[in-house]
Design a protein around this nucleic acid. Structure first.
Length: 881
RNA sequence: GGGCGGUUAGCGCAGAUGGUAGCGCAUCACAUUGACAUUGUGGAGGUCGCUGGUUCGAGUCCAGUAUCGCCCACCA
């Protein structure tokens, strides 16, 4: 790093320039590289791999920042730390992007053929793979790029095959016909959790099915009249007396006249609709179950494109129509045919593809599934036993609820981009072999489906570490990982699957803590989305306010409960202002270090203020460690902000200016200034890595550690515990604040110096004598006189009581007497109320016997304090009158 | 239908084990050659959604209730 001359440092922190240089400095020095051979205790995090198609958004920024904070903290705390970066191949999303590009050239993927298309997609992925992780660099992410992985790379692919084959061998993967959520636009099955439900206004059409060979009919209610062609039965509840006599009879499907039976099944709700339900097993999951119970063969009437099939069962006028057209036309035909009894408007939920919002078509088809129930056992146990802990804890219930009611996972997707299913079919016999490799490419053809993207990301914590080679260095050193950081929206998609797979294949929980943070929303609490146009681009924020400002702001908005975070552009001013404050305070310190040595602080020559700030720093270090260990990250940010700004800058630096004038104190003050700044920068480093590193590099130190990010994180040290001095100093601060308060309320200009009398009790005079210089300067006081009760100057004085010390101030000319009387009366009222409630407390026997002694003491002294204040305020009011 | 979360100052939010209600922004007054106006100093502003209960004492614990939001399941 090139050292700038201190005097040349700009008065406004230049984030952009600094951040670029600092990140490069870390990279050049390989500061992020993890060493699997290290003896140190490991700490590892795997990144939730962002989609290759992705562009950095605020969710990434928050997620990445939190991970980086944990990683940097542990690295500084003596752990061998690995943050594993990588990207996800994102099946449908990526395929969509490439297909869209092809479409612009007037082509489809089928024009290219599978092999060519996959090749093209690889080109695209390789080209874009680094883009999103390079954007993470702008966040200051200290991940180890030398280990970067991709969910479709060789290692992941080996792991996927291994897992698939093993699960198949254990009969935990099966191929079967089931009703799946079919997206007609994506042309693929999708899993249950990839479908969203939207409430739509629709109708319940009541259609009359006439009985065969006798008069009469049964009226069924349906929301999907276009599926009548696929009906295989009409079902009624066995206990429904209305229909009792009809059970077993045959009815005719309107329009086509096909014969179907009336069956009885408990599934039918007597009270809904007409109490009679048409059964279409190929296009409704519940009907499928009913059909199976009654041995009814499903009839497909809607194809994969969502169009009506050209088959005998479908009315000739309907064949080839889309679902929507078919519905309209069928209703018309029914009406014409007098089969439509009535139309009842209803609201119901319609399944939509999460990715493209196309209405899902429940479709009976052959797909691959993972049998989840046996696998879920260990995954439930891992959380119930506490081996894996959710933070905040409430997500545990959510997770367990889902896992205990788990349904089989449909893992096959009819796409080309992804892990192709390692099942091979004999070209002649059709026999299937599941194996890691094609047994004989000349004779066998691989299953054309690929796996759900989450299948490979479910293996991420160990596939990235070298598994299935259990002897791999990284696997041995860094697996299981330590903490998983993510948003609650992917607990089911990802976290649950990683735990399941981790337990099954490594017999270990893949991480010990799942830290769930809130979602980023806009200032109105709306989810950010491109379509709503309410996104805030983190890179834009970084350009405008700086990366550390972004990180600090986001961090400070994190709550322990993991509430969602509402942000707006202006909120980042908070972090920017803090960065600028750090910058300028550091500039001041650096400019005043001339002549300082590298010796340790001289403990025998510490002033009250020195001890106070060292104690405060010590407490802050303690709290910071605790906060971070307990994932109270927002709290950590607040604590550091408060310490740096309100203690170090507002008080200590101001006092240091006084002490630096005193030759006998100068050197030690410089040492304290430097030491506290050094330690504070370290405490802040995990949150604000760039600015702290930049300043630290300018700080004279006696260490050969080349970067703050490799330095030791401060911890609580007994030798800095100056609790008594802390209390004494607080008394002084109260005094100074009260003096300022009185000065302003009496409109005494800052330029006017005042004389004060301090009425000090016990040893307080000694304390004040030690800090007279501070009072002189910080409260702009000329003369200080110590007096006792009998000698205080009353005439021509307005007075106020500060703690147990009394300060007399000569009355300045221009006081609005009435205003002041009002103010003082109000104040009097307030403290009298407080006194009364405290008195009630002290007079209460139970309080006196139950409360802690310190609290009783505190209460008593507060009452005494109030009594003194009351007297003084009364005196004051009288003198004003 | 089941579960979860929010409700505290004008706005955005903190408030572990119950003990004098806090922070940021905004606001008002004062301060500008001195690290910083992306600043400093001081002030004003709250019966903690509502009702009951436990307790000497409740923002905090319990019961109920209102309201907003989220998740899961889903009856055609």
């Amino acid at each position: 790093m090139s050292l700038t001359k201190i005097e040349d440092l700009p008065t406004v922190y230049n984030a952009k320039e600094t951040e670029e240089a600092i990140y490069k400095f870390w990279e050049d020095n390989e500061c992020f590289k993890a060493n699997a051979k290290s003896e140190k205790e490991p700490y590892s995090i795997v990144i939730p791999p962002p989609n290759v198609t992705g562009v950095l958004h605020m969710g990434h920024a928050l997620d990445g920042t939190l991970q980086d904070i944990l990683v940097r903290y542990h690295r500084m705390s003596g752990y061998e730390t690995l943050w594993m970066p990588g990207t996800d191949h994102a099946g449908i999303a990526t395929q969509n992007v490439v297909e869209k590009k092809l479409r612009q050239e007037g082509k489809t993927r089928f024009d290219l053929g599978r092999e060519k298309f996959v090749e093209l997609t690889w080109d695209w992925a390789n080209e874009h793979k680094s883009a999103i992780l390079n954007q993470f660099k702008r966040l200051g992410a200290s991940f180890d790029r030398s280990r970067e992985r991709f969910t479709l790379d060789k290692g992941c692919s080996d792991a996927v095959k291994e897992v698939f084959v093993k699960l198949y061998e254990k009969d935990l993967i099966y191929k079967g016909a089931y009703i799946v959520n079919w997206c007609p636009r994506c042309q693929s099955a999708i899993s249950d959790i990839e479908t969203d439900y939207e409430t739509e206004k629709s109708n319940l059409w009541e259609i009359s099915y006439s009985l065969k060979n006798e008069p009469g009919a049964i009226v069924v209610a349906t929301s999907r009249p276009e599926t009548i062609y696929g009906d295989v039965a009409v079902a009624v509840n066995p206990n429904d007396y209305k229909y009792k006599d009809l059970i077993g009879k045959t009815v005719l499907i309107p329009l086509t006249g096909r014969e179907i039976p009336i069956i009885a099944d408990d599934y039918v709700d007597k009270t809904f609709g007409t109490g009679a339900l048409k059964i279409t097993p190929a296009h409704d999951p519940n009907d499928y179950e009913v059909g199976k119970r009654h041995n009814l063969k499903p009839i497909w009437v809607i194809d994969e494109q969502g169009k009506m099939k050209h088959c005998a069962e479908v009315h000739p006028d309907i064949q080839g129509l889309t679902r929507e057209e078919a519905r309209k036309k069928t209703v018309e035909l029914l009406q014409y045919n007098n089969s439509l009894v009535r139309i009842v408007p209803i609201e119901h939920n319609v399944g939509k593809c999460q990715r493209c919002n196309t209405t899902i078509e429940p479709l009976l088809s052959e797909q691959w599934f993972v049998r989840m129930e046996p696998l879920a056992k260990a995954a439930i146990e891992a959380v119930e036993s506490g081996k894996i802990k959710f933070v905040p804890e409430r997500w545990t219930k959510n997770y367990l609820g889902w896992m205990t009611n788990i349904r089989d996972w449909c893992i096959s997707r009819q796409l080309w981009w992804g892990h192709q299913i390692p099942a091979y079919y004999n070209n002649e016999t059709g026999d299937m072999v599941v194996a890691k490799q094609n047994p004989d490419p000349a004779k066998y053809t691989q299953d054309s489906d690929v796996l759900d993207t989450w299948f490979s990301s479910g293996l991420w914590p160990f596939s990235t570490m070298g598994w299935p080679n259990t002897e791999a260095e990284d696997f041995k050193k860094f697996y299981p990982t330590s903490t998983l950081v993510t948003g609650f929206d992917i607990i089911f998609f990802w976290v649950a699957r990683m735990i399941t797979m981790g337990e099954e294949f490594t017999k270990k929980a893949p991480f010990s803590t799942v830290y769930i943070h809130g979602l980023i929303r806009d200032e109105n609490g709306q989810k950010m989305s491109k379509s709503k146009g309410n996104t805030i681009d983190p890179v834009g924020i970084i350009d405008k306010y700086g990366c550390d400002a972004l990180r600090f702001t986001l961090t400070s908005l994190c709550t322990y409960g993991g509430q969602d975070i509402k942000i707006s552009d202006e909120k980042f001013e908070y972090g920017r202002n803090f960065a600028n404050k750090i910058w300028n305070a550091s500039r001041f310190v650096l400019m005043n270090l001339e002549g300082v040595d590298n010796n340790k602080i001289d403990f025998d020559n510490l002033t009250l203020a020195d001890k106070w700030i060292l104690n405060k720093l010590n407490e802050t270090a303690k709290e910071t460690n605790e906060n971070i260990k307990n994932y109270r990250i927002g709290e950590m940010a607040h604590t550091l902000y408060d310490f740096f700004w309100n203690s170090y800058c507002d008080w200590y630096v101001e006092i240091a200016k006084i002490q630096l004038q005193d030759e006998s104190l100068k050197l030690n003050t410089q040492r304290v200034l430097k030491y506290v700044l050094d330690m504070t920068l370290r405490l802040l480093h995990p949150v604000m890595p760039h600015i702290t590193e930049a300043i630290w590099q300018l700080l004279p130190k006696n260490t050969d550690v080349k970067a703050i990010m490799l330095s030791k994180f401060p911890i609580y040290e007994e030798k800095f515990a100056f609790t008594q001095e802390n209390t004494q100093m607080e008394l002084v601060f109260e005094t100074i604040k009260s003096l300022r308060n009185v000065r302003q309320s009496f409109n005494i200009p800052v330029s006017t110096k005042i004389n004060i009398e301090i009425l000090a009790e016990n040893n307080e005079e000694d304390i004040f004598k030690k800090v007279e210089a501070y009072i002189h300067r910080l409260a702009r006081v000329e003369g200080i006189k110590y007096v006792d009760e009998n000698h205080k100057t009353q005439k021509q004085s307005a007075s106020t009581v500060v703690s147990s010390s009394k300060i007399n101030i000569p009355l300045a000319g221009l006081i609005d007497l009435n205003e002041e009387i009002k103010r003082q009366t109000k104040k009097l009222e307030k403290i009298t109320n407080e006194k009364n409630s405290l008195l009630a407390r002290v007079n209460n026997e139970k309080f006196m016997s139950n409360a802690k002694p310190e609290l009783i003491e505190q209460t008593k002294s507060r009452i005494e304090e109030i009594i003194v204040q009351e007297t003084t305020i009364n005196e004051l009011i009288n003198s004003l009158k």
